[in-house]
């Protein structure tokens, strides 16, 4: 059976002088994913290798990493499609804690800053809010984000301004802006329209390009900008 070489970023900033790549050879097998390979290395060869994983089904967002030149989810990347060598390194804009495990706090801080929850005002109805199918459809895409942070880590603006709201948080903010049940339009536009807000976006579409769920954070950012302009001009949304 053929082999596949895993070329894996290793680094513990507390003990290592600098990062290095370590090579592992494992058996190629039909359906072997990058995550499958990493798990096999950890179980059989090198239990000290550190990475995150949970669902192995592309729904939890744990295993985002840089694989052969692009941010992807390790669990859904088939090694057969990547050639003889799989090169894996951690997410780029977050500091390395160990190997492929990075400090996610800045990502979650941006997420929390936009108030990522419905603000429907007081007195909810006795049963559900009535929302038309058309209004519900406006949430498609926005609600499909698994918060894996591929977009955040591919964004050149995040790289230069860590306080920048970033594509994932913007997508989340836009999801609430679009929700017919939400009553916090003004506040959301203020939260995303500040000095480190959506105006910093260079519209290079890298977030959209890498999204494992084919979502459109760039579009969400444009929507937030449009909303802010309309609000400024006193136009109805």
């Amino acid at each position: 059976m053929s082999k596949v070489t895993f070329n894996v970023f290793r680094f513990d900033p507390e003990t290592d002088a600098g990062p290095r790549y370590q090579r592992y050879e494992i058996e190629q097998a039909p359906g072997l994913t990058v995550l499958g390979g990493l798990l096999e290395i950890q179980a059989k060869t090198d239990p000290s290798l550190a990475f995150r994983s949970a669902c192995r089904a592309a729904v939890c967002g744990s295993c985002a990493m840089h694989i052969n030149g692009q941010y992807r989810l390790a669990c859904e990347m088939q090694t057969e499609m990547l050639g003889a060598t799989v090169t894996v390194r951690p997410l780029g804009h977050l500091s390395v804690i160990k190997d492929l495990v990075v400090e996610m706090k800045p990502f979650w801080d941006r997420y929390k800053e936009i108030k990522p929850y419905l603000m429907p005002g007081d007195n909810p109805p006795e049963k559900e809010f009535i929302q038309s199918c058309d209004d519900r459809e406006k949430l498609d895409g926005g609600i499909d984000c698994i918060l894996c942070s591929c977009c955040y880590n591919s964004c050149p603006v995040v790289g230069t301004d860590p306080a920048y709201v970033g594509p994932a948080a913007a997508l989340k903010a836009d999801r609430f802006l679009r929700d017919s049940r939400d009553r916090a339009r003004e506040e959301r536009l203020l939260l995303t329209g500040g000095d480190h807000g959506v105006w910093r976006c260079h519209t290079v579409f890298s977030c959209q390009e890498v999204c494992p769920k084919d979502l459109n954070p760039t579009g969400a950012i444009a929507d937030l900008k449009l909303g802010a302009i309309k609000a400024k001009l006193g136009l109805r949304s």
């Binding site: 419905l118 559900e128 809010f129 929302q131 038309s132 199918c133 519900r136 049940r181």
Partner: peptide, 16 residues
Amino acid sequence: MEHWGCPFSRTPEGKI
């Protein structure tokens, strides 16, 4: 859950 923002799919009448 719906009041907290859970985006359930909808009936033609706009219910869950």
